[in-house]
Design a protein around this nucleic acid. Structure first.
Length: 731
DNA sequence: GTTCTAGAAC
DNA sequence: GTTCTAGAAC
């Protein structure tokens, strides 16, 4: 039997008196605050009271003061409270934080779901039909979201959990459901730190790579080293545990994303109950990790111990650093191995269980914790595989999706491992024979890592071979109706999905990748142009063959866009062979860029003289669909029957659209332009003026046809918007 | 880039 | 039933 070192600070055992807490929910109408409370209260063993402004007034609209009074009296009775009101701005929630002294912990749970989701839920909830109600709900949600301020720890919260998708919400529900009357959650900031949820989850992945200037959503990029240093720091009440991004955590029943890095969390084997010498054990851990870390591809190994002051963690950490082991692939982590994701934000696909030879639950320590957290499903699944384990051996057990470890923590496999027993108080100990002990411990780690390697292979990113497979499959005739064929089709579909994921994962050349003009030199293969994408190239090379052209010079061709996305929408084409897109632009093209800009400006002014209400913006698409570098000059009314979908909108109204002035600056400074991720094309629809969110294109178009709000400050600077002199875009 | 359309969302 | 999106084909 194996036990972890116990940390007196975080361990709740022995403190039995109930500790009421106040959980302040924050979120727009429709974000799911009430559902959150209901789900927790239905199962929790803690005595919760939900303070809801909608219901506290007994039919009439409640007041904030009623809520404050209700919360105070519940807390006085020793009950924990949920403050179920929007609480979106700091001022609104400050009174609740101040309501009681520090003896009551205050937590914030932010349901920061996409505006679209909240709007559509609120609309549903009104139960009314017609656009008016829907429109009203949208307006309310939008108004509230504009006031949104994410909570900060210094407002007085011991713990902040930010949920940005349903999986985050479920994880938070599970965390609070599992919080017994005398339990305590670790303090800190959990969840994505994204200053306002303008950007959806898919985009977060990109933001991790690079913070786009101008869209200043701050995302803290946390490397394993940072996680480690935060987590092993001595906790004080103000400690900020920065957001750890594992956004691909999935909920019960769904598949674990292939984009997850396979990660094994393992406790130190034999060093607790089995009394293995810590110094010797740490040598063996580092030796074995070093041996395996490179065999495991992109998979990660994490040594976990409950205690923040763990001796074994610090020994291993120091020795691993000495050996220069890649800290991205191996690091130490202080936390509860059964709650690495929900409490520590660290998503591990597999966890090792330092078990007993009978593979039975109980005993205490890691084994008891893991069997208890995994539920009876683990015991059943283990029994189905093997009856007992000898020292030095490990066995991989896939975790059924019914297990909370799977649904809450995203753990797909438990690997039981049995180490040598050096404890003279226990039966079958090795009588201080460290020759044998070390040999068995090495063997145990080998078995453990081999077991992990076998599953990591199937959890990791698909190999490039899949591209070939996909090509082959496309070449095959897809006919037949036998079951076998259907199965094959299903598999094919599944594989295609994998390919999609893989492609989107690696395809994006990213900002400034590679030297431009390198043609097919191999590394990042660019998307090939389809036949339909050649029209502009042909226009640039042979303008005489084309109509719709409004100006032609040696450097550029100006033409109206064939499918204008606004009242006025024209293109300035560069007439340089091989200059296909923004990614190809180098310092030598600076003059050309300036020419394109001034020609665009000239024509914008020309159209302005015809219609002085127009406002123009000049810029490039980060990844254009059509070949040949072209500058879009587009009026900001976006009044066009050709503007039909999200991609159309976001290609002109997200960071994907690179203002000509910025491109010129960047190229003159860095010799290249920054390109933004294509994921921006699928972000939620927001008005380019007031930034309100809209559930679909028709609603958005209805809104922008009348929105007169001033443009965001970013656009008002540096001549990004072109309008009649004397006219003010900021009115 | 657009068009077409299945099927999801309403 | 109608509206809307998103993926495939071009």
């Amino acid at each position: 039997m194996e036990a972890m070192e116990i940390d007196p600070e975080t361990n709740s055992k022995g403190k039995d008196e109930a500790k009421p807490i106040m959980v302040i929910l924050m979120g727009a109408p429709g974000s799911g605050k009430s559902t959150f409370c209901d789900l927790v209260m239905r199962v929790s063993t803690r005595h919760w009271v939900r303070i809801c402004q909608d219901t506290i007034g007994n039919g009439k609209a409640g007041t904030k003061n009623q809520c404050l009074a209700g919360a105070a009296s519940a807390l006085k009775e020793g009950k924990s409270v949920f403050i179920d009101r929007c609480n979106l701005d700091r001022e609104q929630r400050a009174d609740f934080v101040k309501l009681v002294g520090p003896e009551v912990e205050k937590h914030a749970v932010v349901l920061d779901l996409p505006a679209k989701v909240c709007i559509s839920r609120s609309v549903k909830r009104t139960g009314h039909e017609g656009n008016l109600q829907g429109g009203k709900a949208a307006a309310v949600v939008n108004r509230m979201l504009q006031k949104k301020e994410l909570p900060k720890l210094n407002e007085g919260y011991a713990r902040i959990t930010v949920c940005q998708d349903e999986n985050n919400v479920q994880a938070a529900i599970n965390t609070y459901t599992a919080l017994g009357p005398s339990d305590k959650l670790p303090p800190g900031f959990f969840g994505q730190k994204n200053s306002d949820a303008k950007v959806q989850l898919g985009i977060m992945k990109f933001l991790k790579k690079k913070d786009p200037p101008g869209y200043s959503d701050t995302v803290t990029n946390v490397s394993p080293e940072n996680i480690q240093s935060h987590a092993t720091k001595k906790t004080d009440s103000n400690q900020v545990v920065e957001s750890r991004e594992e956004p691909k955590m999935t909920a019960a029943g769904s598949n674990i994303s292939l984009e997850n890095t396979p990660t094994l969390a393992f406790p130190s084997i034999s060093t607790a109950d089995f009394h293995f010498n810590l110094d010797k054990a740490s040598d063996i851990i580092v030796e074995k990790v070093e041996e395996y870390v490179n065999k495991l591809g992109n998979a990660r190994l994490v040594l976990v111990d409950l205690s923040q002051n763990s001796k074994i963690l610090s020994l291993v950490k120091a020795k691993a650093a000495e050996k220069n082991i890649d800290s991205k692939k191996f690091f130490t982590f202080a936390g509860n191995i059964t709650k690495l994701y929900s409490e520590g934000g660290l998503h591990c696909t597999a966890i090792a269980n330092a078990t007993n030879w009978r593979l039975k639950p109980g005993g205490g320590g890691v084994n008891a914790a893991i069997f208890s957290a995994a539920g009876p499903a683990l015991e059943t699944a283990t029994k189905a595989r093997i009856g007992s384990l000898s020292p030095g051996k490990a066995i991989v057990v896939p975790l059924p999706s019914s297990s909370p470890l799977f649904s809450r923590e995203g753990v797909t496999h438990v690997i039981h491992v049995l180490g040598p027993n050096m404890n003279p108080q226990r039966p079958n100990h090795l009588n201080n024979d460290y020759v044998k002990g070390c040999q068995i411990l090495r063997e145990a780690y080998s078995s453990l890592f081999d077991g992990f390697a076998s599953i990591a292979r199937t959890q990791g990113e698909p190999s490039k071979d899949n591209f070939e497979k996909e090509l082959k499959r496309e070449a095959q005739p897809e006919q037949g109706s036998t079951n076998g064929d259907q199965k094959a089709k299903r598999e094919a579909v599944c594989e295609a999905d994998m390919n999609k994921k893989y492609k989107s994962f690696v395809k994006e050349p990213g900002p400034n990748v590679g030297s431009s003009g390198d043609g097919n030199s191999g590394e990042q293969t660019r998307k090939a142009w389809g036949s339909w994408a050649q029209a502009l190239y042909d226009t640039a090379m042979h303008p005489e063959r084309h109509k719709n052209i409004i100006e032609k010079s040696d450097d550029v061709v100006v033409l109206n866009d064939l499918y204008p996305k606004a009242q006025k929408h024209f293109l300035v084409l560069a007439r340089v062979e091989g200059l296909d897109r923004l990614a190809d632009v180098q310092k030598e093209h600076l003059t050309l860029l300036k020419t394109m800009h001034s020609v665009g400006l000239k024509w914008a002014e020309m159209f302005l003289s015809e219609n002085n209400s127009l406002i123009f913006r000049l810029g490039y698409h980060s990844a254009p669909s059509m070949r040949q570098l072209h500058l879009h000059v587009i009026s900001q009314d976006f009044d066009s029957k050709h503007l039909k979908n999200k991609k159309h909108w976001n290609s002109f109204n997200s960071p994907f659209f690179r203002d000509s002035v910025d491109v010129i600056d960047e190229v003159s400074q860095n010799g290249k332009a920054t390109l933004k991720d294509e994921n921006f094309l699928s972000m939620e629809l927001r008005c380019h003026r007031c930034r309100s969110a809209h559930p679909n294109i028709p609603r958005l178009k209805a809104h922008i046809s009348s929105c007169q709000a001033s443009f965001p400050a970013f656009l008002l600077q540096n001549g990004r918007l072109v309008l009649l002199e004397g006219k003010d875009a900021d009115h």
